[in-house]
């Protein structure tokens, strides 16, 4: 191919109507004809323009004798001596990576041809579900992104449809079908009102990948503290701490109790256990008690140390 192109260029450059032009054309043609046997030993390569990844194929090669064949691919290099006048067999493992390949055949000179290997059928999904925890009832808070790969982990650039199936712990599930664009499909959805696991499954053809997002309680709502006597101390105890949808805040969430009495201010950061936060504190005389969870403030009460 390279050789033919070169000759054509020489001929077009000499194209002119003059006598000298015609004479030069004839001389060049004669020269090419004389050198033809030398070039003829490097045979032309005619691979298919595109090949599916992992598909074996052959490249017919004309001529006789032996030559060195090179295949230069994204992750594979072949160098072998081949007999001309037959087919060059390309094994499936030699074209498993998508991308541009160079086939080069050399004896006294070299010819080359390139071909494209495209991804095979979808076989893997790299599926990202973000975030892994999300507060309930938050609009557009869950993002799902799926990258579609073939069995050799080439990105499948031909359009495919990814079906995102969302299955909450309670309530009906739903799905969204999203076409891929350059091998990527993504969707966004809102968290539901109830805490718990939500499973999101990305499906393309027979390939499935499941991920889980944990819906957690949102900020505390109507935080309420009450005081109960506990020996010489006063026990401060919240009602069950819930968000505005009625979901219990998880155990370990810190609730801050603050007491102001004649001796000064006292604070206790205590984690919720079994749904409520509780602490014991000594109070001198009349005291003012408040409660907060993060930036959310609850009620305030007045207590007496002799309670």
């Amino acid at each position: 191919m390279m050789r033919v192109t070169t000759m054509f260029l020489i001929m077009t450059r000499t194209r002119s109507g003059s006598f000298y032009g015609r004479a030069r054309l004839l001389a060049v043609a004669a020269l090419c004809f004389c050198f033809l046997p030398i070039f003829a030993s490097a045979a032309d390569l005619h691979p298919p323009a595109t090949v599916e990844a992992g598909q074996a194929f052959s490249i017919p090669v004309q001529g006789s004798g032996e030559a060195t064949f090179y295949l230069v691919g994204p992750d594979h290099i072949v160098k072998r001596t081949v007999k001309l006048g037959g087919d060059l067999e390309i094994q499936s493992g030699e074209v498993s990576s998508a991308g541009r390949y160079q086939a080069i055949l050399c004896d006294s000179s070299c010819t080359f041809a390139s071909f494209q290997v495209n991804a095979a059928q979808p076989a893997h999904l790299s599926f990202f579900l973000h975030p892994s925890r999300v507060p309930v009832s938050t609009p557009n808070s869950i993002d799902a992104t799926a990258f579609v790969f073939d069995r050799y982990f080439n990105l499948v650039l031909t359009p495919a449809v990814v079906d995102f199936r969302i299955t909450p712990a309670s309530g009906a599930g739903f799905s969204q079908r999203v076409p891929t664009h350059h091998g990527v499909a993504w969707m966004r959805t809102s968290s539901t009102a109830h805490e718990g696991r939500v499973q999101v499954t990305a499906v393309v053809g027979s390939v499935e990948e499941a991920r889980v997002v944990q819906q957690v309680a949102a900020e505390a709502c109507r935080l309420n503290v009450r005081a109960v006597p506990s020996g010489k101390m006063i026990a401060l105890e919240t009602d069950p701490v819930r968000d505005c949808s009625g979901n219990a805040l998880p155990d370990g969430t810190v609730v801050s109790f603050t007491t102001i009495d004649s001796a000064g201010k006292s604070t206790v950061d205590t984690p919720i256990k079994k749904g409520i936060a509780r602490t014991e504190i000594s109070v001198h005389g009349r005291a003012h008690v408040s409660v907060a969870c993060g930036v959310i403030e609850g009620n305030e009460i007045a207590v007496n140390g002799r309670l």
Partner: peptide
């Protein structure tokens, strides 16, 4: 991606790629 964990790009590159077998330029 919305989580900032991946970016897909396309590159139009101007490259001259020379393949050598030893010191011999073959392509």
């Amino acid at each position: 991606s919305t989580d900032g964990a991946s970016m897909q790009l396309v590159d139009h590159a101007q490259l001259e790629i020379q393949t050598y077998d030893g010191s011999k330029l073959i392509d």
